[in-house]
Structures are given as C-alpha cells and as structure tokens.
C-alpha cells in the first residue's frame, strides 16, 4: 500500500489495521541485495540499464537498488521516477491525481528499463506504466522488479524479479516500505 493508497483511502471505508509483519527491515534489505545481483546476472552487467521507480511506493526501493547496483557493478545506473496517474484506466471512477514528480533520465530508446514497484497486485499500475514508458522512447526491453507479489492479477502482467510471493485474499492490504512489509486488513469503522 503506497502513499497514494494511504491518502486516497476514504476514511469512511475503514482503517488499515496491521495484522502481521511479513518481512522485517532486514529481510527487505536482503531481498533488495538478491534482486540487485539477479539484475546484474540476467543482463550480463549494467550496460544500458535504466531504473525507474514507480511513484510513490516503488521510488524508495528503486533508490536502494540503484545504490546496491553501483556497489556491485561499479557504475552508476541512471535512476528515474514515474507517476502513472495520467495513464490509469480508472480516471473518472475515483480521484486520480499525480502524487510526485516524473523524472525520466533522457531518451529511453534502446535502453533496458527496470520498473521498480513495492507491491504487485492487479497489474493495472504496471499496465499504465508500460503505456507511459512508450511516450519516452522505445526501450529495448522492460523488466519488472517488485518487493511483494500478492497475486490477483487482472491483466497479463508478470514480474521478472520478486522479493517475496505473498498469498493474500483480495480484501487484505499489503504495506511495503523499506522498513518492512506488513499484512493487514481494512476494517470498517
């Protein structure tokens, strides 16, 4: 549950009640380290890579991954951020406003873009992100890294790098931050 969801969850519909800590801050750090190594392995280095963190939940993870990749590979990977508000398919159904800036480092044509998000759920955010990326050039490939994959996809999207597969029910909420992953519920007031 990114900041967007936190802010837009109407108070009339319930409050987030945390139930269980699924990952500690230490677990998240280890998962990010593994994903960084997987990225280097899969792409045979860091050439042409661009990290793009989705606003707002994915952005801190992208920043951490960027630092880890520099540690491992010795080169600085360009880091961008993307807010997909204008590309969502639920505009008009609920308030959709951009929460944070989009900064894409240069033309993406020919680059391998690694999208980074906190929680993969319905896949609709990633669907919107793919459309958004197309407006910045034609990447050679787009890969997806998420900290938690909680299932319940509504579009054919799959992640390339997963921190943790977390079986959930639809009405549960997952709150993933660099300080840990918490599973909880929305409880009516």
């Amino acid at each position: 549950m990114a900041e967007r969801e936190r802010r837009l969850t109407p108070p009339g519909r319930g409050v987030f009640v945390p139930r269980a800590e699924v990952m500690s801050a230490e677990d998240v750090r280890r998962v990010l380290t593994r994903i960084a190594h997987e990225i280097v392995e899969r792409n045979h280095g860091l050439d042409n890579l661009v990290l793009v963190g989705l606003q707002t939940g994915g952005e801190p993870f992208a920043r951490h991954l960027c630092a880890l990749l520099e540690e491992i590979g010795g080169v600085a990977v360009p880091l961008g951020t993307l807010d997909v508000a204008f590309y969502r398919d639920d505009i008009g159904l609920r308030p959709v406003l951009p929460q944070a800036p989009t900064t894409i480092p240069g033309d993406l044509s020919g680059a391998v873009v690694i999208l980074v998000d906190d929680v993969l759920f319905t896949g609709r955010t990633i669907r919107a992100a793919l459309n958004a990326l197309a407006d910045f050039g034609r990447p050679r490939a787009v890969q997806l890294a998420v900290i938690v994959d909680r299932g319940h996809r509504e579009v054919p999207i799959r992640p390339d790098y997963v921190g943790k597969n977390l079986p959930t029910s639809r009405n549960e909420m997952v709150d993933a931050t660099v300080s840990g992953v918490v599973l909880g519920n929305m409880v009516a007031r």
């Binding site: 969801e5 519909r13 319905t122 609709r124």
Partner: peptide, 8 residues
C-alpha cells in the same frame, strides 16, 4: 466506484 486496495 473505487474498490479498496484494488489498484496496486
């Protein structure tokens, strides 16, 4: 029209 949590 929003479904809680249905948009990650």
């Amino acid at each position: 029209g929003a479904e809680l949590g249905g948009h990650d």
